[in-house]
């Protein structure tokens, strides 16, 4: 029964990937335009929810990672092979869990890649999500994928906002939430260290435009709106270089 279930999931996810990859970006844009009503996420970090994610099985997560073809974009060990996709190695299990849940619930949308993830997550159970979360969390924070580089000069320029924030814009220092080593924090503040700059910029621009809206009380959207494109790019290089050897 269990094996059968797993098989179904594989079939579903393959079909979903194929369908999503064929879908036109126009469709994705249309979907994003439909404003989702209600809360920005259905996930709430009650004690039971935290315990549930903490008890995820990383070995089963590893199995899912290859069987559901997560690895084709996010890598075998959670390090994305290109800058287009996020690396998930070392990511907080709570964050991975929340994102998968938000995709499934249609709460995270607004881009072509989000459309793909919405399809992929339809057949997933909460247990699958917790298991995958623990699998990625079991790795160290990633170094950049080969071929993706960061610009040290740009990284330097962003230090003021990252370390000191900007009171005039009501922006707290990035590191007060995301950690001084970009490691993230309880419960679902994501790790940023080693994230490919391309993906970082894409994400911040989606927050800035409001296309991505699964941050509770708009906390990230409000910050992103005050940042210039240059600042976003500088921050991307700062966090990308964090785990550089």
């Amino acid at each position: 029964m269990k094996a059968n279930n797993m098989e179904n999931k594989i079939v579903l996810s393959v079909a979903a990937l194929a369908a999503a990859l064929m879908m036109s970006p126009v469709m994705a844009a249309e979907h994003a335009a439909m404003a989702t009503k209600g809360p920005s996420t259905n996930v709430s970090w009650t004690a039971e929810q935290m315990r549930f994610v903490a008890n995820g099985d990383k070995n089963r997560g590893g199995q899912l990672n290859s069987e559901m073809f997560c690895a084709s974009c996010h890598g075998d060990a959670g390090v994305a092979p290109t800058g287009n996709w996020p690396s998930l190695a070392g990511q907080r299990a709570e964050y991975t869990f929340k994102m998968l849940k938000d995709y499934k619930d249609g709460k995270r949308h607004g881009s072509h890649s989000a459309e793909i993830m919405q399809k992929v997550t339809q057949g997933m159970s909460d247990q699958d999500m917790a298991d995958l979360g623990q699998f990625y969390a079991s790795f160290d924070l990633p170094a950049l994928p080969t071929g993706v580089t960061f610009d040290a000069a740009q990284a330097d320029m962003s230090k003021a906002v990252i370390k000191r924030g900007d009171g005039k814009r009501l922006v707290a220092p990035c590191q007060s939430c995301h950690g001084s080593n970009g490691e993230g924090a309880v419960t679902d503040t994501p790790a940023l260290a080693g994230m490919p700059p391309e993906y970082f910029i894409k994400t911040m621009q989606e927050y800035k435009s409001g296309a991505r809206a699964n941050d509770v009380y708009s906390r990230m959207r409000l910050i992103a709106k005050t940042l210039t494109d240059d600042e976003i790019s500088q921050m991307a290089h700062y966090y990308a270089g964090m785990t550089a050897k």
């Binding site: 209600g38 809360p39 996420t41 009380y217």
Partner: peptide, 17 residues
């Protein structure tokens, strides 16, 4: 009030602030 579920509550939902 349950602080963890604040955004899912009636009064403190994101569009009610």
């Amino acid at each position: 009030i349950d602080s963890a579920k604040l955004h899912l509550s009636e009064e403190f939902a994101e569009d009610k602030l």
